[in-house]
């Protein structure tokens, strides 16, 4: 049975939180993590939708560095107010 997109988003969010400050994760990493856990029950399209949900809701943001990672909102070292 397909895993609901909301659940995927929540689980991705947890992974991002755990690795914050340690490893930058990209969309592909998150998708692979979900596929590793649930196999065929996760489609690429659902994983993509879950990421879009995280971003559109403002729970996560795209970072540029290292090739567009998905991160928790935070202020960065270079920022000027």
């Amino acid at each position: 049975m397909a895993i609901p997109v909301e659940q995927l988003a929540d689980e991705m969010y947890e992974i991002i939180k755990e690795s914050a400050g340690v490893k930058k994760l990209k969309g592909g990493d998150l998708t692979k993590a979900m596929v590793a856990k649930y196999g065929d029950e996760v489609s690429r399209a659902d994983a993509k939708a879950a990421i879009r949900m995280l971003i559109d809701s403002g729970r996560c943001v795209y970072g540029y560095f290292g090739g567009s990672s998905i991160e928790l909102p935070h202020s960065e070292a270079a920022e000027n107010k």
Binding site: G21, V22, K24, F65, G66, A77
Partner: peptide, 11 residues
């Protein structure tokens, strides 16, 4: 104070 060490190393 300014930079995350793991991120900097990984960059």
């Amino acid at each position: 104070n300014l930079c995350e060490i793991p991120t900097t190393v990984a960059s």
